[in-house]
């Protein structure tokens, strides 16, 4: 199966190893992975800021970059939602929307894999549900099934589905509110080995706030954890 990776601007620069792990995982699962080199950003920052013209330019650019891709896999639920939900609303209904997947959903639903291996045996994990994956794409169980399928214990985290407070530009426009939201999530965390999320933006928000408050929790991108699940590395 041919898959184009849309790495996203945040993963490219801040979660490069996790994105590489996504490539390793997809190849391991038999996919032929390509990386269209002219890709940049999906355009969500402009879209969510209400900059309609700029959002359209970015969406057109990305649609062009991905026009020949059979399947597009994105290591971010938020950016995947931008491509699948917002592009049609911007008038780009014939773009890559219907062929684009968030990583966990692609593995669990499209490749129909229930267990990648037992590489997460004995690990306790808090899974942060990214809002756009959860509420725009309706992805609630896919990644959790993969984590549990590999032996991880996904803990009951009362605020797992609550927003981390990132919200892109929101995090810098309303810093006290944004960080109070992160605190609400972090304060309710049970004891775990890792906090895992499929969204780079949420991970940046939560880990940056945790470091500021002297919290040494370990935050990991879903892609790295799933590769570890498949590869069996400790």
């Amino acid at each position: 199966m041919k898959v184009a990776l849309f790495v996203t601007c945040l993963a490219d620069h801040y979660f490069a190893e996790a994105a590489a792990d996504a490539v390793r995982l997809l190849r391991h699962l038999g996919c032929e992975v390509s990386f269209p080199n002219t890709q940049t950003c999906c355009g969500q920052p402009a879209h969510n800021a209400g900059m309609a013209e700029e959002a359209l330019k970015m969406a057109e650019h990305t649609s062009g970059v991905l026009k020949d891709a059979e399947h597009v896999v994105v290591p971010s639920g938020s950016c995947a939602a931008m491509i699948t939900k917002a592009y049609p609303a911007l008038g780009l209904g014939n773009g890559p929307s219907s062929r684009t997947w968030e990583l966990g959903a692609f593995v669990r639903r499209h490749l129909d894999i229930a267990s990648l291996g037992r590489g997460l045996e004995g690990r306790s994990v808090a899974y942060h549900q990214g809002c756009h994956a959860l509420r725009e794409l309706g992805l609630e169980t896919e990644s959790i099934e993969l984590l549990e399928g590999a032996g991880a214990h996904v803990v009951d985290w009362p605020s797992a589905t609550e927003c981390c407070g990132f919200g892109g530009l929101f995090s810098t426009k309303m810093p006290p509110v944004s960080t109070a939201m992160a605190d609400a999530k972090l304060d309710s965390l049970p004891q775990v080995d890792w906090v895992v999320s499929g969204d780079p933006g949420c991970l940046l928000q939560l880990s940056s706030r945790a470091r500021r408050t002297g919290n040494d929790l370990r935050f990991r991108h879903l892609a790295s954890v799933l590769w570890e699940a498949a590869d069996g590395r400790a």
Partner: peptide, 29 residues
């Protein structure tokens, strides 16, 4: 714009190498 981030949070830590650099060098399993 960015001071709003660092007021209450540490600056995000960039990856030592970008993904696109890792890709061009070849990502092995």
């Amino acid at each position: 714009v960015l001071s709003g981030w660092t007021e209450h949070r540490e600056p995000p830590e960039p990856s030592p190498r970008r993904f696109r650099d890792l890709w061009s060098e070849g990502i092995g399993e």
